[in-house]
Design a protein around this nucleic acid. Structure first.
Length: 309
DNA sequence: TCGACGATGTTCT
DNA sequence: GAACATCGTCGAA
């Protein structure tokens, strides 16, 4: 699928571009609306779009053709690659399968760095982000893990499912965090930050839907620089819990174009787990040094790395 | 840029 | 009833 200009709002193939009419779901996105409701809204609007498209095809074709190169004009003869049905297959050529996730937590947390997380929204729009920060949770022995002591509850069931299973939970009653289970009983990887790659305007609108109307504009690096921010930007909610990242059609992981070099990966203590005693100090957070989208830079660890090299 | 603080409701003991 | 793998805002430097 040809790349869209970064500033362009995403469009559904063969349909009017989003952001220009009352059928843009984001115009209906109300403060406090959950991502799940957003997904339902998108589905409803997509159905309306299809009906509208069929209607336009039979009634308004001459008017649309007269738009020429106008951004609202439909493609003269839609190529197969514009179809959401074809683009899916094509874009998945580098998709990472179940064997990728079947690694021990620490190895997998490092392996995630540089890979591309792709989310297909209900209207077919895709957003992409490069993984730049992860945390490993080792399961039963790990005092900071939700699965510590082998504790299994309805909430954390995804942690115990096969590698590649998503564990999405609500934190502080208002945010989501996304984990991916790995090899090892109750072990998983927390995805903490992404570097936005594609669909930045859609990410920005999804993020703004959770903020006050008067808030300042978000910089690109602020779109996904935190575990709950990336969930907002990719419209990931509790409905993704226990889905399989290796098989799911709405979200998947692709091989990144370049992996970070080993000496640029920082291993630092995890964030927000001060209650976990000695486990709070273990270097189980991994991030790409110097990447602007990393949520928390650990200057001390980076200085130690520099001194020892 | 950094630190303090309040919002928020699910989950677990 | 307490804890919580966070975030946005505000004020100070």
């Amino acid at each position: 699928m040809p790349a869209l200009p970064s500033a362009a709002l995403p469009c559904v193939p063969g349909l009017p571009r989003l952001g220009c009419s009352t059928i843009n779901p984001l115009l209906h996105f109300q403060k406090g609306m959950s991502a799940f409701k957003m997904a339902q809204l998108c589905k409803t609007i997509l159905r309306k779009k299809r009906r509208l498209s069929e209607s336009q095809a039979t009634q308004s074709q001459p008017k649309l053709e007269s738009l020429g190169d106008h951004p609202l004009a439909l493609p003269q003869s839609p190529a197969p690659e514009y179809s959401i049905y074809f683009s899916h297959q094509k874009s998945n050529s580098s998709r990472l399968g179940p064997e990728f996730f079947d690694q021990p937590a620490i190895t997998l947390a490092r392996a995630f760095l540089g890979q591309i997380l792709v989310r297909r929204l209900p209207d077919g729009t895709k957003v992409r982000g490069r993984v730049v920060e992860t945390e490993a949770y080792l399961g039963s022995e790990d005092e900071a893990a939700h699965s510590k002591g082998g504790r299994q509850t309805p909430r954390n069931k995804g942690m115990f499912m096969k590698p590649g299973t998503l564990y999405v939970y609500i934190i502080y009653g208002m945010y989501f965090c996304m984990n991916v289970s790995s090899q090892g009983e109750g072990a998983c990887i927390l995805l903490r930050s992404l570097e936005p790659v594609e669909g930045l305007e859609m990410m920005r609108q999804l993020r703004n839907a959770h903020r006050k109307g008067t808030a300042r504009a978000l910089k690109d690096r602020e779109l996904c620089n935190g575990p709950s921010k990336l969930c907002q930007a990719l419209a990931i909610d509790k409905s993704f819990d226990q889905r399989d990242l290796a098989e799911e059609e709405a979200i998947w992981l692709e091989q990144g174009p370049e992996r970070p070099e080993e000496h640029t990966v920082v291993a630092a203590p995890r964030i927000g787990i001060n209650y976990a005693g000695e486990w709070a100090l273990k270097p189980l957070r991994f991030y790409i040094q110097g990447n602007p989208s990393v949520s928390v830079v650990d200057r001390k660890v980076e200085q130690e790395m520099q001194a020892s090299s």
